[in-house]
Amino acid sequence: MGNYDAFKKQVVDTAQDLTRKGYLMATGGNLSVRIPGQNAFAITPSDYDYFKMTPDDVCVLDFDLKRLEGRLKPSVESAMHAAVYQVRADVNAIVHTHQVYASALTLIQAPIPALFDEQTRFLGRSVEIIPYVPSGTGLLKNTVAKHIRNHNNAFMMQNHGALVFGTDMERAAHNVEILEKCSLAYLLAICSERKVSKVPLAVREIAFAKLRKDQERVAKNALEASGE
């Protein structure tokens, strides 16, 4: 096995699982995993059917987007993934989806407040909306890098989809599911035209403090692995 084979397999397995569950559709979205100890990541190729994808199809890039492995064109949003890894040392996996309910909230520009305990524990204080910029552009990379410094693990991209992080790929995939639950519940609550209740502020902050503790541990380990 090559140096990156396990990471490439993880990308494929997760992409196919999320497709089976309906969070990824056709060739939309992309996901990646950080390569520990290197300024590099494995990412899905551009415009490629997830169910046809094999580990050999996954691309490995450094943070300057230099190809380290892979024969196919990497995702057009590879620069966005690289920017996230550079800004957030606690993030080891990224999933970008066009999942339906979160995407619907972006169309009405409705960020999700702290609705549930698990949301604040794993996604953060809220799910904010990153302003619209065209896909695959340098402007998208810069806009995302600017808006993700608040330590939340889930964001909604206006007229686009969702951007979800995790300390590992399993956590990122779980966070995708939590986000969709919150998105659907919030949409239904909004439609009721009744007041939407939130978790108490003290509970939110306790849960968020636990999330931050996890993030700080992972960021410390990443810095030690890189020798910085």
Results as ranks from 00 to 15, higher is better:
K213E: 14
A89I: 00
T54D: 04
M157Q: 12
Q16A: 03
L184R: 15
D62N: 15
L187T: 04
Q16D: 05
H81P: 08
T19D: 00
V144Q: 02
V199S: 00
I148H: 09
S32R: 09
L163H: 10
L123P: 11
K9H: 09
Q215W: 13
K73C: 07
N153D: 15
V60T: 04
Y23T: 07
E205S: 06
I129T: 06
G166V: 04
I130T: 10
S226P: 04
N152F: 05
R217P: 01
L68R: 02
T120F: 03
K198G: 06
F41H: 02
F155L: 11
D57N: 08
A185N: 12
Q119I: 13
R67S: 09
F41S: 04
N39H: 01
K52L: 15
K213Q: 14
E224H: 13
A83F: 04
D49H: 05
A6D: 10
R20T: 13
V76I: 15
A102R: 15
A207H: 15
A110V: 13
L211C: 03
V133R: 05
R121F: 12
V176K: 08
Q109F: 07
H96F: 05
R67G: 04
R125I: 11
L72F: 07
L140C: 13
A172F: 15
M156P: 08
D47M: 13
D17E: 08
M80Y: 05
D90H: 00
A83C: 01
I108C: 12
A154L: 08
K181Q: 08
I35Q: 12
H98T: 11
L65S: 07
A42C: 14
D5V: 04
K21M: 06
P55D: 06
L184T: 10
R34P: 06
Q109I: 12
